[in-house]
Write a protein that binds this DNA or RNA. Structure first.
Lengths: 168, 168
DNA sequence: TGAAAGAGGACTAAAATGGTTCTACTTTCT
DNA sequence: AGAAAGTAGAACCATTTTAGTCCTCTTTCA
């Protein structure tokens, strides 16, 4: 099965909702300095996305450790984006939650060949690596604004990549 | 984690090795009629790909049920490709083994909205569906010859594929 | 008829996933 | 200073998936 984990999916929701808040802040204050955005508490974010507080808090912590969010501790604290939303892409979010993506065992660039029983025999390895790179490339190209509500004002998501929609 | 299952990975190996055999047959006999290719037994295929026989047999059965392979029963029997290798793509192989790919819960076209607790609230849904389609599109474009040894003689992997054989 | 080979399931151990809980530790407000 | 609000971090557990095996039956060829 090729799929994105639920946690990563939730994380995308969270990031998207924070992106929206940031955009609102910008519209209100005419300022693009992200560090001035008032932080949103874990509870609020959980409510926004219909997630349980503990689960949401866990994801927020992970995203913070990955430097995608920054946190403000103490009363009145919370989270905000650590980067402009255009500098955050789907790949980063997924990797923050689930670790580096590896479409197949052998595709990792830091792969130790001795652990692969097929080693030199594995013909598909190079081909699969290309597949891996193409998927990775695709994920990097999808930035946060595309994933949030803002997409409505930013234009259609499906850009020039997908020329043919015959997939399935 | 976004990844392809080991079984699907093995299946690709198997399909690739059978594709190679078919290509060899064509070179030998100057015939492109795939149904004339002598079948390869599960044991042989397992050896070719360094897989255990039972596991390999299981995958072969699944691939046959998905109409990607055809089988010849009885003594001297085995498997061969059911289609020209250009008509088989990565998507088909993965779906044969793991079932329809669903990057996220909500992305399925046959999705019942009532089961989704987020329902109308889920903002990322449409965006995620686009992601899903892009990945699917990418997988469909990768055909069997690209995944087998033949790529060496057929040219670079990232070549002309978009123009020929619009899968399905 | 018997050996070779596929068909079809049932079954199991191990790992990943999804999620909770508990105990710190920090900051702010009063 | 002390309570409240909030993040940090890790341990923990149930369920599902994955990966792989095994057994029995049917078909075909010699």
């Amino acid at each position: 099965m090729i799929k994105i984990s639920k946690k990563a999916d939730y994380a995308v929701l969270i990031m998207a909702s924070l992106s929206t808040r940031q955009a609102e802040h910008e519209a209100r204050t005419q300022s693009t300095t992200i560090h001035e955005v008032e932080p949103t508490s874990a509870q609020e974010i959980a409510d926004d996305n219909r997630l349980s507080r503990p689960l949401c808090a866990n994801l927020l912590k992970t995203l913070t450790r990955a430097s995608l969010l920054e946190s403000v501790r103490g009363a009145g604290g919370g989270y905000r984006l650590a980067l402009p939303s255009f500098d955050i892409n789907l790949m980063q979010i997924i990797e923050a939650i689930d670790g580096p993506i590896r479409l197949v065992e052998c595709a990792g660039s830091d792969h130790d060949h001795s652990t692969c029983s097929l080693s030199d025999h594995c013909q598909s390895q190079s081909a699969m690596r290309i597949v891996h790179e193409r998927v990775a490339n695709l994920l990097v190209q999808i930035q946060l604004p595309e994933l949030s509500q803002q997409q409505a004002s930013t234009g259609p998501v499906s850009g020039h990549l997908t020329t043919l929609h015959d997939a399935k």
